[in-house]
Every structure is written in structure tokens, then in C-alpha cells.
Design a protein around this nucleic acid. Structure first.
Length: 874
RNA sequence: GAGGCAUUAGCUCAGUUGGUUUAGAGCACUACCUUGACAGGGUAGGGGUCACUGGUUCGAAUCCAGUAUGCCUCACCA
């Protein structure tokens, strides 16, 4: 049989994925088994796969595949998000590139383009997930803007409106002048910016030369000032209370007001008040009934009301106004200043606080069960450190601005009647109203132009994907909800996770999921976040082409402790690929053996099998524990070492027949069984190669796939066996060590003499013989002359190496070990001589220390004897 | 500005309620081996006053306080 020297992912991945699909292994329907359910964090419908998705979905797939093998009815629901602002921005840009302005299109025309774009690019990312091996139930793929899910969104809006949680009002919102929409507080990213603090003096009205100096970072808003505010207790300004000042350039007279909101120490202690363009100034304006002059247009240019530089961008105007103020003698000084400026998460434009009519959702009531059930552990965040962050956010939550001035999304189900008798009467309902309930006419009804925030649909995801709104008592929602695990990035803990929890309790009176596993952020090897702009993010599909999907999955998981950021390095994928090759070659070795059913099982093989059997049980137990604690990276490392060290380096070496010799039937069968168990443990991590080898290692029926095989169960095992083998391993290492030091060929036969301590086991002696390449192994009752010795535990081993022995060298080695052991004994004795230790420590611990003492003493005795012998001989 | 999290080998990390060798793993590194699975391999080895300073304790990488550095989240000081 010709087996290639290396594993070829290309030749296997698509083949198995197709077969899994053909067999419907990923599709789930409710039955009487226990369900295990994950809903995917829906990626942007027009997005492409990046490293974050790669990590996130690999983890989900690992969890799902293991549960599937454990016999759960697993359902991983995939889908995409319409991502209103991101997608709309892309479509606008695409149209612009074609010379079409959004403003030239009607809403309907624009949406046609948008749907066209969605049809063309939508779902690419889902196809990419298949390359990764994601075992989603593709028959359940959902999209947040498909009909059923849209209906759910509107239904929830109407319901919350009727419950009094949703209101419409004029408020200061975060305005994105590039996206031309309001965004929620959570979508504003505050960045530190090096800017200037300008000190500008305003003349007191009616005075000759009396001035008040304010400090501002935004001189362009001076044109909209409607007051100057000082602290009531500020002695510097007390004589000015009640007076008025003249705003430069626009020459407007405005009052000097007082408010204890002012920090006297900051700047000059005098604040210019621009109610239209600052959140705090707006509050001051309301309180002091100030005029509001909106000097900035939606697109960030100066408005007519500004009077100067109308139509020019606010940042250009800032420079110009500073020059004007300097020229007119109003600018007192300019200093460097670092402040935080809000930027739009989606467009990165500087956010402009703007007064506008928006829709809001009141959060204070809704949030209560969501806080409670995370705090009481009903929903677990993993790692737990995020609970603090969650709690803090939830307790300081603001009302959620849910309207967006966009077209791509769910249009708000609210109508206004333009009839003169009923100015702006509001109808909120699902579906077009036939007529105005107030005046009875229908021809002047118009729907609110805005759409809803994207998250206003995705917060319903765990319910809506199972049609829990359309049909709240259907078998799917009853069976799958609440789901089990959610795997996502901490970045969207508030945007999405918290809000899903809120919606879950509001609409199902139950949590949406039990565990939230928060992954880290993928960074490059220099710790920078991977991003398109930096160009430091490898294309996941390129990586898959280069290292195979399994290799990349291992690469991702090797560096992904839960909740910590991971520094991704392509070398890890290489390591993953090498590991796949290692497994592949183990298979090659086994398949290369010829089996002779007439030969009896040699002792070494019998021992190897019993040891490996025990070791397998131990590893399965450990891996299960790690999975249960979401320590996925560690579970992988455990399996990795089990495969590489235990299986390849020890087990296969033990049972390997001599060159061109056959192996006995028993051992061969057991080995195939072990290989199968190993492949099962590997399957969640490396689905493709494990499926490939599953079929290569034995003949399978047409329904027999590792994907649907049973996960190994951890059975009881003989712990003593593992300890005895450990001893044997150390003896073998000792022999190898001496060979190396003495330059003896690894395969030259040697004789080993053992001076055994009472109670030591000789069970693995056949293994020591074989792997130590021993001619003979004998037990002696006293030290052997002319040989080199080493100790393992309390047993002493002697190897006659022929030729002369370097006495000095041997003496030095023994002294070294003696010193170490004496040092060790000292540490142990310190504890045992300490009455506090004896009296306070757990008796079991004391017992262990006593045992350590006995062992060390016996070892010291033997070493000293050897030393006497050596020096005595010289 | 307020909270939170971290700091262990060159790198990435374990170290599970304080006591399992005078701290472990993977990768990287060094030396040697290499025609019978794998040079993408094997064997062995070097490498850490567990960030710093105090404290609690019979005993601290582990608990407490402070310092330093880094990261995250929240926040309306112009």
C-alpha cells in the first residue's frame, strides 16, 4: 500500500465536508435526547472572514463536535446580521464609485441597490465557515432582515411601545456626520486626541474695557453661544453676575449665568455655553432657559444660523475662526491640551452632539432580571472577571437610542398623520394603518423615516431563530431554548450579550443561554489588534490553503486562553500542521506492519497495552474536566501531548516490531483501537484528518463516521500502573543519558544491574530491556564495581560500560546529586522540625513530608556508599 | 477621573480554595543521533531570587497592603 509521507489537507477536507452534509450529520430536529444548542454570533451579511471569526467559530465547532459525539442532540444555528450602518456605508460607497449619490435616489431605489449588494456578497462568509469545518445546521440559516425575523422586530417594538418602554423625544444624541445618523452611546469610541485649548475673551456689554475670558477646545461653536457660565462662588466673577457679554464676530449679547456645575479650577473658570452642540451645555440651556442656536448642519458643515463660513466643514472653520479671533484681539492664548473626542465606531468620524428627535428605549426596568440572573450565577460569564464589567454597565445603563437615520434596516412601525386637524398624530402598530384613527383620512399618513438600530434585531436572535415570536409555543423554541453556550468577543458584551439577556427575560421569562464564553481579541505578534487598516491580519483562507484547516484550528487554539487576548503567530499554524503530519505518520507506521496471528503476544506488548489503556482513561478524564471548565486550549495541549509523547514516543516505540518483523494479532488489534480512541479525542479539534484516518485505519460501513461516533468515556484505571511505568521511563532515560555521556551507540547492547529498594516493582522490566536496548537485566544485592550508576527513586542502577571509568567525573556527578538531595532533605526537615507545621498542617501533608524524608535519607545513604566505594578505589 | 484585570523561562501560557520533588508545559535555543513511520524526526540539555517593597502564616508564585508597568471597561470637566 502506498501512503504519502505527509498528510494532504486539500485532498481530504472538501471530500469529508461534503459527505457530512450529504448524511445530514449537522441537521437537528427536536427529539427525546438532551439538546445542546449554540446560536452563532451572526457576522455581517456582507462581511468576509477575519481572524476573529476564525477563533470564535473554531471554539464553537470544537464545543459542538464534542457534544455531538457525547450523544447530545446538537444544533448550531448559523446566520447573518444585516448590519445596518456598516452595510449601508458600503452600498453608499459603491454607488458613489459608480457616480450615484444616495441623495439622488428614492428610498425604494436605494434599497433595491442594497438588496442587490446583499444577494451578491451575502453569505460569502458562511461559505468560508464551511472551509473551516464549522458543523452548523445549514438548513437553519437565518438572516436578521428576512421576513419572519423582521416581523419579530416590529412586534417587539410595538409591544415595548405599548408597555411604555419606548418613547420618542428631542434629545441630545451622538450624531455621525459621515454616516448621517444618530448612534447609540455604545457606538461612540472615545479617543485621546492632541488638541488645543483656546482662551478667548468676550467683552462685557456696556463696559469700556471689561472682559471675561473663557477656555474652549471648539472655537467654531462660539457662533452658537447663548450664555457664559461661571460658578456662583467664584470671587473673580462675582461682580459680573447679572451682566451680559458680547459674543465675538456675531456680536450677540448673551447673559452671564451662574451654576455650580462649573469647575472653578478648569481653564479660566468661565464656560461658554452652546446648547446646540454640547451635551452639558444643552442641560444648562434647559435649566436656564437659554436660546438654542444650531450652527452645524447634519453633514458637519456650518449652517445659515452660524452666519460665518456657511457650508464649510467645522474643522476647517475652526482654524479660520482662530485666525479671525486673533486678528480682532479676542484670542488671549492657546495651549496644548489632550482631551477625549468621541468617534463613530463604524465610520470613525468625529461625533457631533446634536439635538434631534429620536426613539429611545427605557432600560431601568427591563434590565433588572438581566442583572440579577448574572449576579446569582444563573448565567455564567467565562472568565468570571467580566461579571464586574457587566454589573457596572448594567447599573449605570442609559436609555438606548434605537432609531437610526438610515434606510437599510427595519423601518420604525410608526406613522404620522399630516391632516390639519391632527397635526402629527402618532400611530404605532405592526403593518400599515388603513386610516388615521383621529381624522379617519388615509391620504396624509406617512411612516417614520428612520430604521432601528441593528442590535434591536440581534438582541432577539436566540429567540427569533427558533421563531419564538411568530409562534411562541412551537416545538423548536420549546426544545432548544434556553440555548447552552454562547461564544463571542468581549467587545460586544454590552451591544449584544447583555441585551439578549434582557430580551430573553422579557419575552421568554428565561435566560437565552447558560454560559457565555468570551474569547480574546486576536492580535499580531507585536500585540497590535489585527485590522484591515494595519494590514497585519492574514487572510484565514490563505492560512487554510497553506496549513490545512486542522492546522489552522490548532494554531488558533494553542494561543487562546479564555478571555485573554491572543498574540497570533503564523508559526502556530505550522506547529498545527506538523502535528497533523505526526499523527499521519503514526498511522503510516501502524499500517506498514504485517500481522502474524500465530505469534504470541510478547511481554513488552502486553505491558505496553495495559499501560496505554490506563493512560488513555486518565487522559479522557482530564480532558473532560478541562472541557467542562471551558479550558479548551489546555484540553488541546493535553491531547497533543498524549498523541505525540504517550502514543508515538512511548507506546508505538514499545510495541514496534523489529525491521521487517510481523506484529502479533492481539497487539495490533488493540493498537488500532487506541488509534481510534485517539482520533476521537482529536476530532473536535481536527475534524478532517481524524475523519480521514478513521476511515483509513479500518473498514467502515457507509454510516460509520467519526463525526457521529461516541466520545470515549473515562473509566476507572489502575493508578499504580502509571506510577510504575513512570519509574521505568526514568530508568530508560537514565540509560540513554549514560550512553550519550559515554558516547555509546544508542543500540549497543548493555547489561543493567539493579540494586532495588524493598517494595520496588519489576513489572516494566521487559520494557526497560527493549527500549534501553539491554542485553541483560539483573538484580544485585550490592554495588557493582567498574560501572556507572544512577538512581531513580530509591533504586540504584549500574551500567558496566567497559574501558576505564573517569573516577573524577563520576565522583563529581554523585556529589552533585548528593548535594541536591541533602538540600532537599534540609527543606523537608525544616518543615518536620517545626512544631507549628506538625501541629497545624493537614495530617496527610505531614505524612507525605515524612515519606519524602525517608526517601531522601535512603537515597543519601546509597549515594554516600557509592562515593566511599569510588574514592576508596582510587 | 473612577473601577477592573494582569505581571511566572527568550516567546505564549499552566500553576484549581496556601503545603505532590528547592516552580511546570508548548514553542524557540544548544549538543548529539539519523538507510526501515515522521530531517516537518529522535535523544539529551541549558534557561526562572514567580515585577518590586512590606505584612499575615509553622509555611506564600498562591492571601493582604503599597509601588511600578501594561491592558480593559466606564465617565459630560469645557
Amino acid at each position: 500500500m502506498e501512503i504519502p509521507k505527509t498528510y494532504n489537507p486539500e485532498a481530504t477536507e472538501d471530500k469529508w465536508y461534503q459527505q457530512w452534509m450529504d448524511h445530514g450529520f449537522f441537521h437537528a430536529e427536536p427529539d427525546d435526547r438532551e439538546p445542546y444548542t449554540i446560536v452563532i454570533p451572526p457576522p455581517n451579511v456582507t462581511g468576509v472572514l477575519h481572524m476573529g471569526h476564525m477563533l470564535n467559530n473554531t471554539i464553537q465547532d470544537v464545543l459542538v463536535r464534542r457534544k455531538r459525539m457525547q450523544g447530545y442532540n446538537t444544533c448550531w444555528v448559523p446566520g447573518t446580521d444585516h448590519a445596518s450602518i456598516a452595510t449601508e456605508a458600503k452600498v453608499v460607497k459603491k454607488l458613489k464609485d459608480e457616480g450615484i449619490e444616495k441623495s439622488d435616489l428614492s428610498r425604494e431605489e436605494f434599497l433595491e441597490h442594497a438588496w442587490e449588494w446583499k444577494e451578491k456578497h451575502g453569505g460569502i462568509i458562511l461559505e468560508q465557515l464551511k472551509k473551516l469545518g464549522a458543523s452548523c445546521d445549514w438548513e437553519r440559516t437565518r438572516f436578521t432582515m428576512e421576513e419572519d425575523l423582521s416581523d419579530a422586530v416590529l412586534e417587539v417594538f410595538v409591544d415595548l411601545y405599548r408597555k411604555g418602554y419606548i418613547y420618542r423625544g428631542a434629545r441630545m444624541v451622538n450624531w455621525d456626520p459621515q454616516g448621517l445618523t444618530a448612534v447609540s452611546d455604545e457606538e461612540v469610541i472615545h479617543k485621546e486626541v492632541q488638541s488645543k485649548l483656546y482662551h478667548v475673551r468676550y467683552q462685557v456689554e456696556g463696559s469700556d474695557n471689561e472682559w471675561i475670558t473663557i477656555a474652549t477646545t471648539r472655537p467654531e461653536t462660539i457662533l452658537g453661544d447663548t450664555a457664559v457660565c461661571v460658578h456662583p462662588d467664584d470671587d473673580r466673577y462675582k461682580h459680573l453676575h447679572g451682566q451680559r457679554v458680547i459674543i465675538p464676530m456675531v456680536e450677540r449679547s448673551v447673559p452671564i449665568i451662574t451654576d455650580d456645575y462649573i469647575t472653578m479650577e478648569f481653564g479660566t473658570g468661565a464656560l461658554k455655553v452652546t446648547p446646540a452642540h454640547d451635551v452639558n451645555d444643552y442641560e444648562l440651556g434647559l435649566k436656564h432657559k437659554l436660546e438654542v442656536i444650531d450652527t452645524i448642519n447634519d453633514d458637519g458643515t456650518m449652517s445659515e444660523a452660524a452666519q460665518f463660513y456657511v457650508g464649510e466643514d467645522r474643522f476647517v472653520v475652526r482654524e479660520k475662526i482662530v485666525k479671525d479671533l486673533a486678528a480682532s484681539g479676542h484670542l488671549v492664548k492657546t495651549e496644548d491640551y489632550v482631551n477625549k473626542v468621541g468617534h463613530s465606531e463604524r465610520t470613525d468620524a468625529v461625533i457631533e452632539p446634536k439635538l434631534s428627535l429620536q426613539w429611545f428605549l427605557k432600560m431601568d426596568e427591563l434590565v433588572k432580571p438581566a442583572v440579577e440572573n448574572v449576579m446569582n450565577g444563573n448565567i455564567k460569564l467565562i472568565p468570571g472577571k467580566f461579571i464586574n464589567t457587566y454589573k457596572h454597565w448594567m447599573e449605570n445603563i442609559h436609555n438606548w437610542c434605537i432609531s437610526r437615520q438610515l434606510w437599510w434596516g427595519h423601518q420604525i412601525p410608526a406613522w404620522y398623520c399630516g391632516h390639519p386637524d391632527c397635526k402629527d398624530v402618532l400611530i404605532v402598530q405592526q403593518g400599515n394603518p388603513e386610516s388615521c384613527p383621529n381624522c379617519g383620512t388615509s391620504d396624509r399618513l406617512r411612516q417614520d423615516e428612520d430604521v432601528l438600530d441593528t442590535w434591536f434585531s440581534s438582541w432577539l436572535w436566540p429567540i427569533s431563530v427558533f421563531d419564538g415570536f411568530k409562534d411562541p409555543d412551537n416545538p423548536d423554541i420549546n426544545y432548544y431554548y434556553p440555548t447552552n453556550d454562547l461564544v463571542t468577543a468581549p467587545e460586544i458584551l454590552f451591544f449584544w450579550v447583555a441585551r439578549m439577556i434582557i430580551a430573553g427575560y422579557e419575552y421568554r421569562d428565561d435566560k437565552p443561554f447558560e454560559n457565555v464564553y468570551l474569547t480574546g481579541i486576536v492580535r499580531d505578534d507585536k500585540g497590535r489588534k489585527m485590522s484591515k487598516q494595519l494590514g497585519n491580519s492574514p487572510d484565514p483562507l490563505d492560512l487554510i490553503a497553506k496549513y490545512g484547516a486542522d492546522g489552522v484550528r490548532i494554531g488558533m487554539l494553542l494561543c487562546s486562553p479564555a478571555g485573554n487576548d491572543l498574540l497570533f503567530d503564523e508559526k502556530l499554524c505550522e506547529q498545527g500542521r506538523n502535528f497533523c503530519n505526526k499523527i499521519w505518520n503514526a498511522f503510516r507506521l501502524i499500517k506498514g506492519w504485517s500481522v502474524d496471528e500465530t505469534i504470541a503476544q510478547p511481554d513488552t506488548n502486553q505491558l505496553a497495552v495495559s499501560w496505554f489503556e490506563a493512560r488513555l482513561q486518565e487522559v479522557v478524564g482530564t480532558v473532560d474536566d478541562q472541557f467542562n471548565n471551558f479550558r479548551i486550549s489546555e484540553a488541546l495541549m493535553q491531547v497533543y501531548r498524549f498523541a505525540w509523547d504517550d502514543f508515538c514516543s512511548w507506546y508505538l516505540e514499545m510495541i514496534k516490531p523489529g525491521f521487517e518483523q510481523p506484529i502479533d494479532q492481539d497487539t495490533y488489534n488493540r493498537t488500532i483501537g487506541f488509534m481510534e480512541a485517539l482520533l476521537k479525542l482529536l476530532h473536535p479539534f481536527t475534524p478532517f484528518i481524524s475523519e480521514e484516518l478513521w476511515h483509513a485505519v479500518a473498514d467502515r460501513s457507509s454510516e460509520d463516521y467519526i463525526t457521529v461516533s461516541d466520545w470515549p468515556k473515562a473509566n476507572a484505571f489502575e493508578a499504580g500502573l502509571l506510577a510504575q511505568f513512570q519509574q521505568a521511563k526514568e530508568v530508560i532515560s537514565g540509560i540513554r543519558n549514560i550512553r550519550k555521556e559515554k558516547n555509546i551507540s544508542p543500540k549497543k547492547p548493555l547489561n543493567l544491574s539493579v540494586l532495588a529498594a524493598p517494595g520496588s516493582s519489576d513489572r516494566f522490566d521487559p520494557v526497560v530491556r527493549k527500549l534501553g536496548h539491554l542485553e541483560d537485566l539483573e538484580y544485585v544485592s550490592e554495588e557493582v564495581d567498574n560501572s556507572i550508576s544512577f538512581m531513580v527513586g530509591s533504586d540504584q542502577y549500574f551500567l558496566p560500560v567497559g574501558g576505564t571509568i573517569d573516577l573524577e567525573e563520576e565522583t563529581r556527578k554523585i556529589r552533585e546529586e548528593l548535594d541536591y538531595t541533602k538540600g532537599f532533605l534540609t527543606v523537608v526537615m525544616k518543615k518536620l522540625n517545626n512544631p507549628g507545621f506538625i501541629n497545624n498542617a493537614d495530617p496527610q501533608i505531614v505524612e507525605k513530608e515524612k515519606q519524602k524524608k525517608a526517601d531522601a535519607e535512603s537515597k543519601i545513604r546509597k549515594l554516600e556508599e557509592s562515593l566511599v566505594k569510588l574514592t576508596g578505589a582510587s
